[in-house]
Write a protein that binds this DNA or RNA. Structure first.
Lengths: 286, 286
DNA sequence: TGAGAAATATCGATTAAATCGATCGATTTT
DNA sequence: AAAATCGATCGATTTAATCGATATTTCTCA
């Protein structure tokens, strides 16, 4: 049973005969007759009862007509959805934890207000995980920090972060004689901030003695407050941390003190929905 | 876009590749590849993004997948509904007014309790109208009085009525010297009771002076009570008429005092639903 | 790093399916 | 009674799908 069979069948019912249906479909009468007969053979059910030269639907035919209308309507809707320039469906976004927490709430709220037809889904992870997820097709777009090695993505700039080293007030200022904190708190493996922090230690010709991985920026900051060690976080994260005033901030040296976050998606693979997200991000406040 | 296209497309997604899908479908790999390519051409949308030797769905492909699942499920449901022996769908019944009012409530209640999947529709009319409606396919089955001239119907006996002539108590008994009432009240044209009444007048070598057509048995009985004239109704109709005690009943002569009501449907055109109605009627109290 | 395996794309040949064109028989209309 | 209309049938033709073989790319493992 194919959609074209149902279109022919529906035409015969609507036009009230094989000949009229054939005209309407731009076919010859015998073609329509044979398709109806074949459809009846395949379904093992007569769809019409031939009364003289009239074709009257059987109960089975009426049942099939109902389904035909629904199937053809659904098929039309599918084609319309594919050709539509209107964002719709599910948009699966990946994001680094810090971006998701601080930068995304505003633009995503705007997005879902402007495109109520779109269902948003969000998952967090580090850039490596997110890039893999994109290539596997598990997500449609992702917010990741530069540098993004792959040539398999298209991108636009989304946000600019200023990473700072955060220590407790109790700890003496960094860079004097006191050296660096012996313990560093880092986000889970693969986080770009972590690499930046390791680079910085290397520049100081120092190495952290101990590394603690944490799954939450706010927990990290809490630990820094408790003098457990140093962390490197985007300045913007501090804006949502109520105890930020009790932290000592050390900027990174010029040149490595800016970290761009990109919105990336698979190269050449866009959609009205992804384009809409790009727009909202590009026009939003950075 | 055909259902077979969607089946191939879905198989490629589910099996995770063209080759596996081809095995699964019992086709050769190149056949699957070319159908996917052709589907993409027709939709003017890439459905997969070729990442090396992996096929990853594009957003458009994911949209189409959603619709494919729904379309294929609906198509399966349609085939199941056609092959099913379970009554379902709409059952459109035609009936004479008197039968609908008196005889049908009980069996239809039983029917709709036993087959909750079936939506009942009812229209009333005289046997000629109902037979036409059946042949046009506007209804599926009808309750009509004998005789049913057409050879184009199958039938079973449904009910047996005892038509009686009804007059007002105020009117003297029929058959004496007083003659027959001058006015007759009849149901709308085509009603079999009407013919019976006219035959009876002919037997009495009499003719009614005036004929009034009415669209309701209960209104007719009300008019008889008011001494407007005589009517012929099935005895069973009187059972639902609260003033029946104040009416005078005159039985018809033996031989024409019984009138069978048949359940008819188009010859050879049955369905599980019609069969179920036949069962309920055949097993019900007559 | 290089060879082999595995997957998709391509293309001409073959097979299957749909459609056409003409005709018949039956029914309805004039 | 004649003409027109409609659906069924059947062989011929056209169109579409599939096959089979091969090329190309990518991934894997030594």
């Amino acid at each position: 049973m194919e959609l074209s069979d149902l279109r022919v069948f529906r035409a015969v019912v609507r036009e009230g005969g094989v000949t009229r249906a054939a005209n309407h479909l731009g076919r010859v009468q015998s073609a329509v007759t044979s398709r109806i007969r074949q459809l009846e053979d395949r379904l093992e059910q007569p769809l019409f009862s031939r009364q003289g030269r009239k074709m009257v639907l059987t109960p089975a035919g009426r049942t099939l007509l109902d389904y035909s209308e629904r199937l053809l309507a659904l098929a039309d809707e599918a084609e319309a959805a594919l050709n539509s320039e209107t964002p719709r469906g599910v948009l699966r976004i990946g994001s680094m934890e810090s971006t998701a927490a601080v930068r995304l709430p505003a633009p995503l709220a705007e997005f879902s207000e402007r495109y109520p037809e779109v269902v948003l889904e969000m998952q967090t992870g580090n850039p490596v995980m997110l890039a893999d997820a994109l290539l596997r097709g598990d997500i449609d777009a992702a917010f990741v920090a530069e540098p993004i090695a792959e040539k398999r993505f298209d991108h636009i700039a989304a946000f600019e972060e200023s990473p700072v080293i955060v220590t407790s007030e109790a700890h003496p200022p960094i860079g004097g004689d006191h050296g660096c904190p012996r313990t560093v708190l880092v986000f889970e493996h693969g986080c770009p901030h972590r690499k930046l922090l390791e680079q910085w230690y290397a520049q100081q010709k120092d190495t952290p003695e101990r590394t603690i991985e944490m799954g939450s920026y706010h927990a990290m900051l809490g630990c820094v407050l408790a003098s457990m060690g140093a962390a490197l976080v985007p300045k913007s994260v501090l804006s949502t941390f109520s105890e930020a005033g009790r932290l000592r901030l050390t900027p990174l040296p010029k040149g490595s003190d800016k970290l761009r976050t990109l919105l990336i998606w698979r190269k050449g693979v866009s959609s009205p929905t992804i384009a809409a997200l790009r727009n909202v991000i590009a026009n939003g406040a950075h």
